[in-house]
C-alpha cells in the first residue's frame, strides 16, 4: 500500500465541493463481427467525441471483443418511444442510420438506413420501412453525427486475456475441487454453478 494511501488525512466536516458540471452522454454501439450489425452496448459520459471513443473502447471493447465502435451523442439520437426527445437535426437530405429493438428490454440493432432532411422525417421513414416486422422501438441518428473507430483501432488481443474471464479459471477450479470432493458431488455442485444457482 502506498504511504500516501496509508496515511490518508481525514478531511472532517464539509469539504468544498462546488458543482463542476457533467460530461455529455453518448450511446455506444459495437460491431462484434466483420459482417454483423452494430448492436447497442450501453452509454459513456465524455466531454468530446475523442474521449467518448477512447472510453468506449476500454469500457465496452475490453471484455467483449469487437471490430468497430460507434459513439452517438445523445442529442443526435431520436426515438419512437419518448426516451429521447426528437432531436432538432435539420438541413439537407442525408442518410440516417436506423436502430430497431424487437421487444421491450431488448437491444437496439442497426437494421439499415434511410434518407431524410430532419429527424422527424427520418423516424417516419424508418417506421414505414422497418416497423412492419413489429419493432418495439426505433432510433435514428444522422450518419454524419456518428463517431466511429478507424479500421482496426479497437483493443486487439495479442496475448491471452483469459485471466479476465470466468472461463480462464474453470479448469483450475475443477482440478482443485477434485482433490476435495467426490466426482459425483462435484458434478452436482457444478450443475448448480453460476447459471442456475446465481
Amino acid at each position: 500500500m502506498s504511504k500516501l494511501r496509508q496515511d490518508v488525512e481525514l478531511v472532517e466536516g464539509e469539504i468544498e465541493s462546488p458543482a463542476e458540471g457533467d460530461f455529455a452522454p453518448y450511446v455506444i454501439f459495437t460491431r462484434l463481427t466483420d459482417n454483423g450489425p452494430h448492436i447497442y452496448a450501453g452509454w459513456v459520459d465524455a466531454v468530446d467525441d475523442a474521449m467518448a471513443l477512447q472510453f468506449a473502447r476500454e469500457h465496452y471493447g475490453q471484455d467483449q471483443e469487437c471490430v468497430n465502435i460507434w459513439a452517438i451523442p445523445q442529442p443526435a439520437l431520436s426515438g419512437t418511444e419518448t426516451a429521447f426527445p426528437t432531436s432538432d437535426v435539420e438541413g439537407a437530405v442525408r442518410p440516417f442510420e436506423v436502430f430497431a429493438q424487437s421487444k421491450a428490454g431488448g437491444q437496439h440493432i442497426n437494421v439499415g438506413s434511410v434518407e431524410a432532411a430532419t429527424s422527424a422525417d427520418a423516424l417516419l421513414r424508418a417506421r414505414q420501412q422497418f416497423g412492419d416486422s413489429g419493432a418495439h422501438s426505433i432510433w435514428v441518428a444522422p450518419r454524419d453525427r456518428i463517431v466511429a473507430t478507424k479500421k482496426g483501432d479497437v483493443i486487439w488481443r495479442y496475448t491471452s486475456q483469459d485471466y479476465r474471464m470466468a472461463r480462464g479459471y474453470s479448469a483450475s477450479v475443477r482440478e482443485k475441487w477434485q482433490k476435495i470432493r467426490a466426482e459425483k458431488d462435484l458434478t452436482e455442485y457444478e450443475r448448480d454453478d453460476i447459471e442456475e444457482m446465481f
Binding site: 471484455d63 428490454g105 470466468a166 480462464g168 479459471y169 474453470s170 482443485k176 475441487w177 453460476i194
Partner: peptide
Amino acid sequence: VRTMKRINMEEAFHFKSGEDMVLT
C-alpha cells in the same frame, strides 16, 4: 435490468477467480 445483465457477465469472472484463490 440491462445494466445488471452486463454486470453479471463480468461478476462471473470475479466469482470464479475468487473461488480459485480460495481453493489455492
